[in-house]
């Protein structure tokens, strides 16, 4: 299945802004995050098709997954 992955801010460094990935059916968000070598504790917002989604959510054909890093400074 094809899933569009959008990365934001620092997650783009040495990765990509957005890319369409071919993933096996049943792949979870957590697995994609691991494949991208993003530490879970560095994750801010995780959005699936424009809505907040837990990491265990399964992805489906045509989904758009957006990952934002945690921003906490002041």
């Amino acid at each position: 299945m094809k899933v569009l992955i959008k990365l934001f801010a620092t997650f783009r460094n040495e990765r990509f802004k957005q890319a369409e990935k071919e993933l096996p059916p049943g792949t979870s968000i957590r697995q994609v995050v691991a494949q991208l070598e993003i530490a879970e504790e560095a994750l801010g917002m995780v959005m699936l098709n424009g809505r907040h989604a837990p990491l265990e959510s399964e992805l489906h054909e045509g989904d758009t997954l957006s990952l934002f890093p945690l921003v906490g400074g002041g």
């Binding site: 879970e40 801010g44 906490g72």
Partner: peptide, 24 residues
Amino acid sequence: QRIYAHGVDGKGAEKTLGNPSFTP
């Protein structure tokens, strides 16, 4: 609470990026 659910003890990107004058 939901935005910060993954990293309450803060691995915010600012730890490595610092903060320049214009963002704040």
